[in-house]
Design a protein around this nucleic acid. Sequence first.
DNA 1: CGATTGGCTATTGTCGACAATCGGGTCCAA
DNA 2: TTGGACCCGATTGTCGACAATAGCCAATCG
Lengths: 213, 213
Amino acid sequence: MQTASALRQGILEGKIPPGTRLTEIRMAEQLGVSRATIRTAFHQLTQEGLIDQIPYTGWMVMSLSAHDAWELYTLRSSLEALASRLVATEIRSGGASAMSTRIDDAFGKLKSACAGGNRKQIADADFGLHRTIIDLAGHRRLAEQYAQVERQVRIYIASSDALLDPTTIVGQHRPIVESLTVGDVQRAIRAAIDHNEQEGEKLVAHLAALGAH
Amino acid sequence: MQTASALRQGILEGKIPPGTRLTEIRMAEQLGVSRATIRTAFHQLTQEGLIDQIPYTGWMVMSLSAHDAWELYTLRSSLEALASRLVATEIRSGGASAMSTRIDDAFGKLKSACAGGNRKQIADADFGLHRTIIDLAGHRRLAEQYAQVERQVRIYIASSDALLDPTTIVGQHRPIVESLTVGDVQRAIRAAIDHNEQEGEKLVAHLAALGAH
DNA sequence: CGATTGGCTATTGTCGACAATCGGGTCCAA
DNA sequence: TTGGACCCGATTGTCGACAATAGCCAATCG
């Protein structure tokens, strides 16, 4: 839906910052549609994990505390560990070379994005690599739940690209890619968990610093 | 919301079987409310994973194939493994005796339910024990995502209680409870995974048998 | 002076009517 | 016979108006 897309983009690009209160009436006027249309869009965004409803009061752009960041990265760790197990197992058993190719392609895009230096491109390529692995698992519900986590993480990555260090990103993802493409199940699971632990600590620290400022 | 609760109950108790097509107009007449109210209820149930929307066509009660069952149990396994890790770690490090108590209580209810023999009570106690562990993890997003999986599993458990064997249920849960209450992290994780593997195979087999009938 | 009650405003919750869209069936023509 | 265009019923999508509710501020009472 068009109006949901507009709002999603605004939130994900940081134009509508976390904690912003959204009212149906104002949004309806602003976008030139009726409240019913806004309402379905808000329901959609709620399902995507981007906003929250407060009965008889309004809607709020999801806002993350340090504890929320901890939740996101512990959850993401578990979901990526499952995906890594499934993909690595498939690569190990079958000769699924198409899977390895797609992972290598996504990793290649990340490498050239880091070489380029464009923050948005780097972030997109980073998320793209992770999403490629998730999609390869052939697990709709896993993909859906992962997408919810990813979108919430993106809210913060977008509004504060303090978590992107172009010089280290490629190296941090190499263990994940290599263990997967050779079908080393145990190492792939471990690599996914380790990666999320590192990233999670960074986001928690970042949010704690913001909270203190 | 009242109307969402009525529909949820109907679906979870099997009165509205999987695959049923729901139309806003008929539901509105049937429950004596307007379409707008039904619509928000449907959006709520969609977020809960109980129904699906088909644009310009209607809404359908979630229907599970054998592959869907595989998805549910692999996902549940990962989520319960995470919860088990968190809870067992907490019990090990702190003297969180309240946690052990709540787990033992839930296990006690399961035992007496199995002794009683009432299917619905057994199912509720079974889900209750798992939910207790999830809740103890202190992880809102984990609880929410787990709830989605649980509700979808419940759709089938309710409509075909072939998966409940009162004589073995208690024994199947004992490793989970014992490893958690003594704070054995690794064993707790393993117990959670093993349990889900068993249950998943049962549901897959059940669905495959239905598909063949 | 503090707490409680009452009303007021802003916002969501609910409603019925109309517009847009989808799917299937029919009719016609090649 | 078969392919395709068209029409029609059913259903959701959208709209504006009214009802219900929460939160706030002030007035009142102890």
